[in-house]
Simulated assay, not measured.
Amino acid sequence: MVTTTRLGGAAALVYQELMADIADFRLLPGDRFTETDLSHRFGASRTPIRDALLQLKRDGFVDVRFRSGWFVCPFDFQRFDELYELRMTLEVAAFERLSRAEPEIRLAALDHLDAIWIIDESARETEPRRMTELDEGFHSGIVEAAGNREMAIIHREITEKIRIIRRLDFFKDARTAATYREHGELLRLLRRGALSEAIIMLRAHIEASKLEVRKITLHMMHEARLGATKS
């Protein structure tokens, strides 16, 4: 994870584990815990625990109240809107850069993604966590292939911050099917060099995902936690 490069050793591991807990619905908005709880769980001293929590607070995932302890933050839908807008700006720029890249670079990136997304329906992934990983890989793969390392770093940070809501998306069969269909069409457009059409479709693709965010409820997250536990 990009964020943990600002942490060292045990603090980075605690950060990663707590991020995984949030993304996998083991910790939901409003859930509370103490530094002592985490110290016992991880077998770590209070210093790395506190460092990890403070970084999570800076990243907007948790907060703390005097005498109430730490808690997972409620969803900030305005923040998610802004993150999606920034993501769209970066990915449109990546599409433009990739269209100008050397053919062997562009085609190598597309060949790799074709093998994942342009496949028979019977071979498609259906498990939400794995679908999230594949979806992130598609978008980050395009950005990385565009060749701007700083752009790729920022894009990965945004990806980390919206991971939980993207995973909720893939508990819906219709959204999974739409992702395969739209990713496949985006790859075909990029291969043909139809940049304008590809950008129009990319904007619509990300906007549809952004609109789904507003439909999220805590009940949906509890159901997702139950589904993840069963799987």
Rank of each mutant, 00 (worst) to 15 (best):
V62N: 04
F80E: 02
R67L: 11
L83C: 09
W70E: 00
Y84P: 03
G69H: 04
D63I: 01
D59P: 06
R79N: 05
D81G: 07
R79D: 08
G69I: 07
R67M: 10
Y84F: 15
E82P: 09
G60S: 13
C73N: 01
F66R: 14
V64N: 14
D81T: 08
V62A: 08
F75G: 02
F75M: 10
F71Y: 10
F75I: 08
F61Q: 03
W70D: 00
R58W: 06
F71W: 02
L56G: 12
D76T: 03
P74W: 00
L83N: 09
R58N: 12
S68V: 05
G60K: 15
Q78N: 15
G60H: 14
F66C: 10
G69N: 08
F75P: 02
R67I: 07
E82T: 14
D63Y: 01
D63W: 01
D59E: 15
Y84G: 05
L56M: 14
F66N: 14
E82N: 15
F80R: 04
R67Q: 08
D63R: 02
G69L: 07
D76G: 01
W70A: 00
K57A: 07
D59W: 06
P74K: 01
C73Q: 02
L86G: 10
F66S: 13
Q78C: 13
V64E: 10
Y84A: 11
F77T: 04
G69E: 10
F61A: 06
C73E: 00
E85G: 11
C73A: 01
P74V: 02
E82C: 13
E85C: 11
E85D: 15
D63H: 03
F61V: 02
E82A: 15
V62C: 05
Y84M: 12
D81L: 11
F66Y: 14
W70R: 00
W70F: 01
L56T: 10
S68H: 06
G69W: 06
D59V: 06
Y84S: 07
W70N: 00
D59R: 14
G60Q: 14
G69K: 07
R65V: 08
C73P: 00
Y84V: 09
L83V: 10
E85R: 13
R67F: 09
F71H: 07
P74M: 01
L86V: 13
L83R: 13
G60T: 13
F66A: 13
F61W: 08
V62I: 09
P74F: 02
R58Q: 09
R79K: 11
F71T: 03
C73I: 00
F75T: 05
